[in-house]
Design a protein around this nucleic acid. Structure first.
Lengths: 335, 335
DNA sequence: AGCATTATTGAAAATGCTTACATTTTGCGC
DNA sequence: GCGCAAAATGTAAGCATTTTCAATAATGCT
């Protein structure tokens, strides 16, 4: 009756109950074919009767694989990676993989600690979302001996795959349009949190400027903390007014929106405001902010799909998977 | 040179390298004391030299525990549970537990599939965040034979713990204040997604009304989808005007805010708008919405801490952990 | 019926660790 | 030096699977 009396049921119990050897039971649960239908039925009946659930840990030991993959993400913004995780988990479910979640704050030794942990757990693979990896972090990661997929961050690690959106091209096309119309007072406001992404973005913008025979110097660096950045922007827009203000995330774009308004700058009449990354916030702001819609769910789903391919030994022809973005014009831009 | 030549290093390799038995190595890595300092040094040198990392899978098999706990969350709003996850992971890191992530959509058989998966993986415990469990889901969960902690949802399952915020009391106190001032035209707008939470909230409000000799009937049900609800609210506020509008999440409160504005209702001059749950959205809206600040991070951290206690066999005196909320008055209320 | 195949099954080793128990070493008092 | 307890180390039996290889049963053919 009591829980403690309930004895654990192993493959032996099942073998015993069905009157076969444990090897046969193993064959049945792994669907390996060569078992007579009759005995298969007996075994399956025993499994149901005893409520047997194969022990994945023992399987992991015997098979030298865990069907577990480790996901490493920054601990800050689940706001932006929520959809990525959803996509990833959906695909993981299809292929019967489990996901372990690991977050990195920015402390120095953190990454190697996490990796140590992942190595011990013998995950079959690692998926990393991190827009800004330091050199030492990259180095640690490169020493990893398991399949790796990077999301949103193109690496030079030859043995891993990358799933990302080409911000550079996206911004190039956007800015190009403005320049074609003769609008060239464009700035981008950002903090230093994501140096890689920022440099991609700026390279795209710069290319557009160069092709128009101009030089881009509109990078305005803002403080990292939201409230600080808010103050900074408030101060900034009390002195400046531009045709176009681009920011990395819609949360920052909203700060731009609010501070512009507080300084008598009308959006979009006086200034176009654009956000590169979109999140649910944007549903709730008026005016809605024109932005690129990043296919977050697809990023996650594709990353996981690529991972399964790597693990199945399917040859992955492509190391790089570039996803499309869509620019959505909303109420914060007039052009 | 090549990776394929690299042979795996096990506890045997280390024992061999150090010239001791594997038992001794095991004692060293588990810090079990009774090893002479001298041999301990030898072993540790060998570990470093070979780059040995204990295989957690084999350990799991030998010890019958995985130091892994499974986290089950709804697949929808990482917006609200991001901080919970952060708190949970931080504590998990301290106690060296790994977290596997499982999401539930609302499909019927999903929960038992997830549980099947978790049982197979032999997680040491399960933490569940889900505001609305169906009866059949609860039943499946109750049959679980591992320690469980529920976040934000008080269950009657005797063998599990609950970590939650008492919405009923929170709303009681809030509404009480209004009623004391003679303001009683209060409504709450919500969809049916979280029946449990909603009924808690309404019970709190009702209690306040009753103590003032009145009856509460201000529950306005709105459609689940954001855009539908937006239309609904727009229509609604073209016909109604109330002293106070309460909604469950700040995303909905923003919809209220916007639709009020579009119908010429000024906030807070004409109507107070209040949100029960707070998220980062609220930083970005003007006016900021008065809301309860739910201690999300603490919910997650405490849940994990309670779990570690259950797993260590420390007696958990309390099954229920009620956390405090703070009501923050912001610009969307005048009262 | 007898033999050669082939389809099923079982026995046992392997997976990498922990730990109870056995054995060896050490230290100490005389 | 000797004896004995305590400390240190080693041996081997689990832990729950998979899988190779050998053994057995079933089948087809003459």
């Amino acid at each position: 009756m009591s829980n403690s009396e309930k004895k654990k049921v192993t493959i032996y119990s099942v073998a015993n109950e069905a009157g076969v050897s444990l090897a046969t039971v193993s064959r049945v649960i792994n669907d390996s074919g060569l078992v007579k239908q009759e005995t298969k039925d007996k075994v399956e009946a025993a499994i149901v009767k005893l409520g047997y659930r194969p022990n994945a840990v023992a399987q992991g030991l015997a098979l030298k694989k865990t069907t577990t993959i480790a996901l490493v993400v920054p601990d800050s913004s689940f706001l932006y990676i929520g959809k990525i995780i959803n996509g990833l988990l959906d695909v993981a479910k299809i292929y019967k993989y489990n996901i372990t979640l690991h977050t990195t704050s920015s402390s120095i030794n953190e990454m190697s600690e996490i990796i140590d942990n992942i190595v011990k757990s013998r995950a079959d693979g690692v998926i990393i979302y991190n827009e800004s990896l330091s050199n030492s972090e990259s180095e640690v990661l490169n020493s990893f001996q398991v399949p790796m997929v990077y999301i949103g961050h193109k690496t030079t690690n030859l043995s891993s795959c990358n799933v990302y959106v080409d911000y550079s091209q996206a911004l190039y096309e956007l800015v190009n349009e403005y320049l074609d119309k003769g609008i060239d007072d464009i700035i981008i406001v950002e903090d230093r949190k994501n140096p890689d992404t920022i440099s991609q973005i700026i390279s795209g913008i710069s290319r557009a400027y160069e092709e128009h025979g101009k030089k881009f110097d509109g990078y305005v660096e803002i403080p990292e903390q939201y409230h600080n950045s808010y103050e900074f922007l408030n101060e900034y827009f009390s002195r400046h007014k531009h045709d176009v203000v681009i920011s990395m995330r819609d949360s920052q774009a909203v700060a731009v929106l609010n501070t512009c308004r507080e300084n008598g700058i009308r959006v979009p009449e006086d200034t176009d405001v654009i956000s590169v990354l979109d999140s649910r916030i944007n549903d709730m702001v008026r005016p809605r902010i024109s932005s690129f819609v990043i296919p977050s769910y697809d990023l996650g789903a594709l990353a996981m799909r690529v991972m399964t391919k790597m693990l199945n030994g399917e040859t992955v022809k492509e190391r790089d998977y570039k996803l499309n973005y869509i620019y959505e014009r909303k109420a914060s831009t007039k052009n």
